[in-house]
């Protein structure tokens, strides 16, 4: 009797190793259990995941398009150049001196010197006003330095800085950035980028709310179960776990759906875009989401699922107490 009683007491609690093993086993079980719970209600699960997927696909798709646009215009940017018109009194040797000076600037790739005579010849050859120019006694054209800025970084400010540096040279009459429209394009893309960011933020918030609300309903549906768990000594972590894993699955599936939507969209517009670019005699291939982007999409989606369910569980679990 006495030894029986002792045995009962020693066996009343699992050992540490057993506890550790059951803990991990329990995680694996809940991992699949929550998946099983979701698969029991495939339609509503799919709907929730679709909402998450679409909400994430929108900013992700725009982001991918924007990345492509930036890549495409990155090519145009290298053609951007600054024309520096030198003052008329500058002689050819002085101009060449300035040319080699500017050449040494770190933010400059190359400087091309167009002498007054060469400018005149080119103008005569290309403009069709050749005869009119002959009527003039002097060459009205200044000598020009064509400066190509180094633009490995798509940085508008760097170009502006270079431009003002060139303008401030005392030999400069006038300096102007060619292809103003590239700058405008960048400005627009900046706005679009900001817009995509804001849209992404708002839609991420929407995902949080969708997951939170879905989990809230799940908690309410399983109110009785939660009460029973609390009565027989289930810790908050134990009760929380299946809901968190449910949030995880919503996030994962939502992310996969978003990835599929974006990939499908990119695939379907890639051939018309190729047609368009060949019309411009431009070689450009639409690139889809990179492996890294896909991974971060899934990661963000899973995190949103987890955080959404965490909030819902945190808010509603405490309210449910056995009476």
């Amino acid at each position: 009797m006495n030894s029986n009683k002792r045995k009962r007491e020693t066996l009343n609690r699992p050992g540490f190793i057993t506890l550790l093993r059951s803990y991990f086993l329990r995680h694996v079980q809940v991992f699949f259990y929550s998946l099983g719970q979701l698969s029991r209600v495939p339609i509503s699960t799919l709907m929730t995941c679709m909402v998450i997927g679409i909400a994430l696909a929108l900013p992700m798709g725009l982001h991918t398009l924007l990345k492509n646009a930036q890549q495409l215009s990155g090519g145009w940017e290298s053609t951007a150049q600054i024309s520096v018109f030198l003052k008329k009194k500058i002689t050819a040797s002085q101009a060449q001196k300035i040319q080699s000076d500017i050449q040494r600037w770190p933010d400059v790739i190359s400087v091309d010197y167009i002498s007054r005579e060469r400018a005149l010849k080119e103008f005569q050859a290309l403009s069709g006003f050749g005869d009119a120019l002959k009527a003039l006694n002097t060459n009205p054209l200044p000598s020009v330095l064509i400066v190509k800025p180094k633009l490995s970084q798509t940085n508008e400010q760097a170009t502006q800085k270079l431009l003002s540096k060139l303008r401030n040279l005392k030999q400069t009459d006038k300096a102007q950035l060619d292809m103003q429209w590239v700058r405008r394009l960048y400005a627009i893309m900046n706005i679009v980028e900001r817009g995509v960011l804001i849209l992404g933020f708002l839609l991420a918030l929407a995902v949080l709310l969708v997951v939170g609300n879905t989990i809230r309903l799940a908690i309410q549906n399983r109110r009785k179960e939660i009460v029973v768990m609390k009565l027989i000594g289930g810790t908050d972590a134990f009760i929380r776990r299946p809901f968190l894993y449910t949030g995880f699955w919503y996030g994962l599936f939502g992310g996969i759906i978003a990835w599929m939507l974006v990939s499908f969209t990119m695939l379907s517009i890639s051939s018309p875009i190729e047609k368009l670019t060949t019309l411009y005699q431009n070689q450009f291939e639409l690139s889809g989401m990179s492996f890294l982007t896909t991974l971060s999409l899934l990661g963000i989606s899973i995190i949103l699922g987890l955080v959404g369910s965490w909030f819902a569980v945190g808010r509603h679990l405490r309210e449910i107490e056995p009476q």
Binding site: S22, Y23, G234
Partner: peptide, 10 residues
């Protein structure tokens, strides 16, 4: 259920 909660082995 109480045993699962307490972490007993299968």
């Amino acid at each position: 259920l109480p045993l699962i909660i307490a972490g007993f082995s299968h």
